[in-house]
Simulated assay, not measured.
Amino acid sequence: MKPVILDVDTGIDDALAIAYALNSPELEILGLTTCFGNGPVEKTTRNTLVVLEQLGKSVPVYPGADKPLSRPPKKFPTHIHGEDGLGNRVAKSPVMEAESESAVDYIINQVKQRPNEITIIAVGPLTNLAHAVKKDPEIVSLVKEVVIMGGAVFIKGNVTPYSEANIFTDPHAAECVFSSGLPVTLVGLDVTMKTLLPNTILADWRATGREVSDFFADMTSFYMHAYETFHPGIGGCALHDPLAVGVVVDPSFIKKETWNVKVFLEGEEMGRTVAQAEGEPKIQVCTRVEADRFLNHFLNRLF
């Protein structure tokens, strides 16, 4: 089993990624760390606990960053994830509680206790990881791998013509992580936009008659309706965050290229991720995906 810390800003595709990760026997999920992004950190932490309870899983949750490193916070994407961040499906507060240790300290402590063993899967803004690197640079040489859902290296963005949402939310954190020397694999829109979850699958989920399946179907339906607004006729939604988990479960789902990736930190192109052949450090950028094989794997694991 691969020991994993999953760093989330739990909205709808984060919830799908959490379910996929926790139901993948290849992964040992040590803990979940939360960040602002799809909502304020108080809400994303609550949502993480709600999803765990729906799945009947018990994993420690560590609250993290509540704002970007440098830029002003942007408006939360309630039009994509709902007012509650989970498609307006949160009916009650979770019974489970978050841990008192901060996400940043938890990441540092775990990595130093298990040197060269831990994979960090980050599917939200990279603020927690940037803070950890700044607080204790030693961890850069002690992390086995960092798999990030973020960026749009060779295609256009999804929040601006240039930028993907996670990078745009805290571009300074992304630049800090990319330039740190951490062993990064970037799972960006270049591949995630090819992983379409069809809307027809929701009827199958509801047909199981299970509360957890209904919860995920209703939540994902909200997400799919939002997708139709921006991509008329798409017939589903992309599996952004789950693909980052899939890359750790089975690296053969994707093909990678080695690039030096820089992040634009100002102007109308803020958050843009640009690949350069020259310069260091290099990171691995996912450029191709076996989408159908990944989708089948995801669906077989989800519940």
Rank of each mutant, 00 (worst) to 15 (best):
P125E: 07
I155T: 14
V153R: 02
F154E: 03
E164T: 01
V143M: 13
Q113H: 11
G124L: 08
E117R: 14
N166G: 04
T119S: 13
A165P: 02
P137T: 06
E145V: 02
I139M: 11
A130F: 11
Y162W: 15
N158V: 02
A122M: 06
V159L: 07
F154H: 14
D136R: 13
R114Y: 15
E138D: 15
A130T: 01
L129F: 10
V146M: 10
P171H: 05
K135M: 11
V147S: 07
V153T: 14
S141M: 11
K134H: 02
L126N: 04
P137W: 06
K112Q: 10
N166E: 01
I118N: 03
A122G: 14
V133Q: 02
G150D: 01
A122T: 15
G150R: 00
I121R: 03
V153M: 12
K156C: 10
A132P: 02
P115E: 13
V147I: 11
E145N: 14
V159P: 00
V140A: 07
K134V: 03
I155G: 10
I118D: 03
A165V: 05
V123C: 02
D170G: 10
V159A: 04
N166A: 12
T160A: 01
G157K: 01
G151A: 09
I120E: 02
P171G: 06
S141D: 14
K134T: 00
I118S: 12
V146D: 03
I120V: 15
H131P: 04
P115L: 08
A132T: 01
T169V: 13
K156H: 12
I120P: 03
K135H: 05
V140S: 09
F168Q: 00
V111K: 05
I167W: 00
A132S: 09
V140M: 13
P161T: 09
L129E: 00
A152K: 00
G124W: 04
V140R: 09
I118T: 10
I167C: 06
A132C: 09
V153E: 00
A122K: 07
D136G: 00
M149E: 07
L142Y: 07
A165F: 13
E164Q: 07
Y162R: 03
A152R: 01
P137V: 05
K156R: 12
I121M: 03
N166V: 03
K156Y: 07
V143I: 15
K135E: 13
N116L: 13
Q113C: 10
I120D: 01
L126A: 10
Y162P: 01
E138L: 15
A130V: 08
N158K: 04
R114I: 06
L129N: 00
P161I: 11
T169D: 13
E145L: 02
S163M: 09
V146R: 07
E138P: 03
I155Q: 06
S163A: 15
V143R: 01
G150E: 02
N128Y: 11
D136K: 12
V146L: 14
G150N: 01
N158A: 06
N158H: 05
